[in-house]
Simulated assay, not measured.
Amino acid sequence: MPETVLTADGRVAGRRARATRQRLLTRLTEMLATSPYRDITVIDVARRAGTSPATFYQYFPDIEAAVLTIAAEMAEAGRQLRPLVEDQPWTGKSGYETAQLLVDGFLEFWRDNEAVLRVVDLATIEGDERFHTLRVRMLNNVVTALAAVIGEMQERGRVAEGVHPEAMAGALVGMLAHNAAHQRGYESWEIGVGNLRESMAQLVFWAVSGKRPPR
């Protein structure tokens, strides 16, 4: 059953209205890839979507509200990163492959959502609690999953007693998110994404398993 979508006046949107709303969000997402979101106007989005500003206002009060909707959908999609941690092997060669897949998941997610994530990061830095909450929600799924794995490894004597599982998990996820967001910057330093990937996988595996990566 499709998710219930309400118009600005509280009415339930029908199939055609939902399609129009989604078209507006899709065109706005495309525009975010080439323009600062504060430079984008309702008229621009409506024109790109083949509709009118009045139609835009039936669904969103302003551009920022539409961007928040896109960001919320992206944060929900970020749940796909959690299964890369849970119920996966974290020792030996298989464990290192798990670390590589987690890194790949972050790199791919950031590439696929680069424009929206750039807006979320900027708004978070500027102190917008709405965007900050979405960012925390998106990353917290991975933090809690990694913390549970590190805690389990600690109980098995593989990770040192002095390690704080939640803090270590937060540090790892912060590292993954930051580096995934700056992939192009590394290339300007003549550091290939492949080298960045392996370096992050080694750090993740070492921190989670308590062992050096297998050769």
Rank of each mutant, 00 (worst) to 15 (best):
V159H: 02
Y186L: 14
Q154A: 04
E161T: 05
G185W: 08
M175R: 09
Q183L: 15
E161V: 12
E152Q: 10
A177V: 13
G162P: 04
G185I: 11
A167K: 05
L172G: 06
M168F: 02
E187A: 13
G174A: 04
M153Y: 03
M168I: 00
V173G: 13
E161C: 00
E166N: 02
M175F: 09
V159T: 01
E152T: 13
E152C: 02
H182S: 10
A169Y: 10
A177T: 08
A167V: 15
R158K: 12
I150A: 01
E166W: 00
H164A: 14
M175L: 15
A160F: 08
V159Y: 02
M175Y: 11
R156D: 06
V149T: 11
A171R: 07
E187T: 13
A160G: 07
G151A: 03
H164R: 11
R156I: 01
V149C: 01
N179G: 04
P165A: 02
Q154T: 05
E161A: 15
Y186G: 15
M153P: 03
A169P: 08
E187L: 11
M153D: 01
V163N: 03
A177H: 07
M168V: 12
R158A: 15
G151T: 09
P165V: 09
M153T: 08
N179S: 07
N179L: 11
A181N: 10
P165W: 03
G162I: 09
M153A: 12
G170L: 11
I150M: 03
H178W: 14
V159P: 01
A169D: 04
H178I: 09
E187G: 06
E187S: 10
L172E: 09
G185Q: 06
Y186N: 06
R184C: 00
H182W: 09
V159D: 01
A171W: 00
E187D: 07
A167T: 13
H164M: 07
I150F: 02
V173K: 14
V163P: 01
A180N: 05
G157H: 05
E152Y: 01
V173M: 11
G157I: 08
G162C: 11
R158S: 08
A181K: 10
G157M: 12
M168W: 00
E166A: 02
N179T: 15
H178P: 03
Y186P: 06
M168R: 12
G174Q: 09
A160H: 13
A171V: 06
M175P: 06
L172D: 05
G170Q: 14
Q183F: 07
A171H: 15
I150Q: 02
L172V: 14
G174S: 08
G174I: 13
G157D: 05
A181S: 11
H178A: 15
